[in-house]
Design a binder for these strands. Structure first.
Lengths: 140, 140
DNA sequence: GAGCCTATCGCAACTTGTGGCGATAGCGGG
DNA sequence: CCCGCTATCGCCACAAGTTGCGATAGGCTC
């Protein structure tokens, strides 16, 4: 299904603002915040309001174009939907961030499906804990 | 280590406000929001500010008395540290919330430890996905 | 029990994100 | 190409939570 089809079938419209938000997420490296997207969007169209950015991110997620994740407790981060899925391990001690391969997530997800019938999206929120380094270092 | 010892060794003090916040979390059933704690605290001491509640929850977490978790994308929830740990599965379709036994979390955590050396706290954030019911129902 | 040091308090401003409202502008039909 | 329906826009107010600041009050010493 193309973006045009998705728009039509959901009754949504393609506006200048929506186009700019989508492009900003698509051209970003990874995991951008709404604030960073707004900044980029305002470079071309300075009067665009923050609420417009938030509403468009939500609309684009419904259209299947972008996805949001939670890497830390504070800020929501966005990325394009067609990038490869992966999880994140965040260390509570040193703050380091490690990517987890989809295959490892799949194994965990399989367990939840087998035991609870639950089809989990383990990439949605980062997993917090203590990383190898910080576990092995004797003195904190 | 008693609460007194923890306070002393960290240079923290026990104030009327801190006592009330701690009691509110301890007497709550499960997973209370800061707002609910504030409401309870203000019943006895009406002029206590929201920021005082937030700062005390943070301080009490550092003292090991309370813990916060994220059940949905929006609101942080708090509970006493000595309650039994468990995870949460949240269905994105119907919104249902299922508790996961510690043993299931442990198995998943073991996998992360074996493969990444990462000691995960899988109870910190709820796991989102699609529950058994919603997966099996043909029409959305 | 008085005095000192400073953690904590209440207040107000700020941040991230949501929701209501009148005005604007996509987009499908004639 | 113009018209009308209504999704979306910009603006403003609000919700959840954080932060800076001067004032207050724990708790240790004497």
């Amino acid at each position: 299904m193309t973006l045009q089809d998705a728009l039509r079938s959901s009754g949504k419209r393609m506006t200048v603002q929506r186009r700019l938000v989508l492009d900003a997420v698509r051209h970003a490296r990874h995991h951008v915040t709404a604030e960073e997207i707004a900044k980029r969007v305002r470079a071309k169209h300075p009067q665009i309001d923050a609420s417009t950015v938030y509403r468009n991110l939500q609309a684009l997620e419904e259209l299947g174009e972008v996805i949001h994740t939670h890497l830390d407790d504070r800020v929501t981060r966005w990325h394009r939907a067609d990038s490869h899925p992966h999880g994140h391990l965040i260390c509570l001690t040193c703050g380091s961030e490690t990517e987890v391969k989809p295959v490892a997530l799949a194994a965990m997800a399989k367990r939840l499906r087998d035991e609870h019938g639950f089809d989990a999206d383990l990439a949605h929120s980062a997993i917090v804990g203590i990383c190898r380094q910080c576990r092995l270092v004797p003195s904190q």
